[in-house]
């Protein structure tokens, strides 16, 4: 629909994905993954799939972030590299 908006979203998607993979702090990685999910939801809406975007925003940015944070607090990091 709007190619320049979609290009901005794609660039943001790549940046947030690389950040979530490469960042050392796990909590920061979860937050970046939530941002990735939200940007992909915006991308779905820009492409016209409003229902898919709604689901992605609710599930990806709402609930899985909470579950990941709980799992981080339940586990310990063994290696110190």
């Amino acid at each position: 629909m709007h190619p320049e908006v979609e290009i901005i979203f794609f660039i943001l998607l790549i940046i947030t994905a690389l950040l979530a993979l490469n960042v050392k702090n796990l909590l920061l990685a979860v937050v970046t993954l939530t941002v990735f999910s939200f940007v992909s939801a915006l991308l779905y809406v820009a492409m016209g799939a409003v229902d898919v975007g709604f689901t992605e925003a609710v599930v990806g940015a709402g609930v899985t972030g909470v579950l990941f944070v709980v799992l981080i607090f339940k586990t310990v990091r063994r290696s110190s590299d």
């Binding site: 229902d51 709604f54 689901t55 609710v58 609930v63 944070v69």
Partner: peptide
């Protein structure tokens, strides 16, 4: 309109999880 059972149920769960957190 867009939405439905799954999205609404997930938002209800998110409202509960917000207070749990």
């Amino acid at each position: 309109s867009p939405g439905g059972g799954f999205q609404g149920g997930t938002m209800l769960a998110a409202a509960v999880l917000l207070l749990r957190l």
